[in-house]
Amino acid sequence: MKVYPRARSLRRALSSFVGFSSVRTATPSDARCHGNVNSVLTIDSAIVDAIVAHARRDHPDEACGVVAGAIGSDLPTRHIAMDNAARSMTFYEFDSMEHLRVWREMDDNDEEPVVIYHSHTATEAYPSRTDVSFAGEPGAHYLLVSTREPDAEEIRSFRIVDGVVTEEKVNIVDATVDA
């Protein structure tokens, strides 16, 4: 995976854009230990199918959502398609009230947002500067789906911690949950 040169150039871009000044590493020491951190996202094929279907449904607007999982499990089990309040082809934003409701629900279920996903509808499935700047859940896998090709999806997953993007493998498995 040719992610490191890319991450470095992204970081340089960010550094001039939003004032990064210090040197950062791809695995900050204060990153939360999260099972198989920075290596792989294991996710059920039924959930991936649901995410892709959501992205196709909302195309050409960007689609967004969450997959919740038990705290500390690093296993995404409950797919929640969120509204894109921005209803835009180039921007997504959770609706603030739905955001609160879903985060409370996760709290009540002892869950956390294991995956936060969105689609890019005309570009590759790689975090944009915007994505990196907004990434506010350092424990989450940021899953991107590109729907720019009508008959094939590009699905990639990243950690975004303190502005540093690290791509990880996506391991799609069958039947870890009843979806």
Partner: peptide
């Protein structure tokens, strides 16, 4: 009181929003 960072992003069109995240 609950504080939640907005979950937002997207392919293009950066607005002046990075400040919240201290960057």
């Amino acid at each position: 009181i609950t504080i939640l960072p907005a979950v937002a992003g997207g392919a293009l069109g950066f607005a002046a929003a990075a400040a919240f995240f201290g960057r």
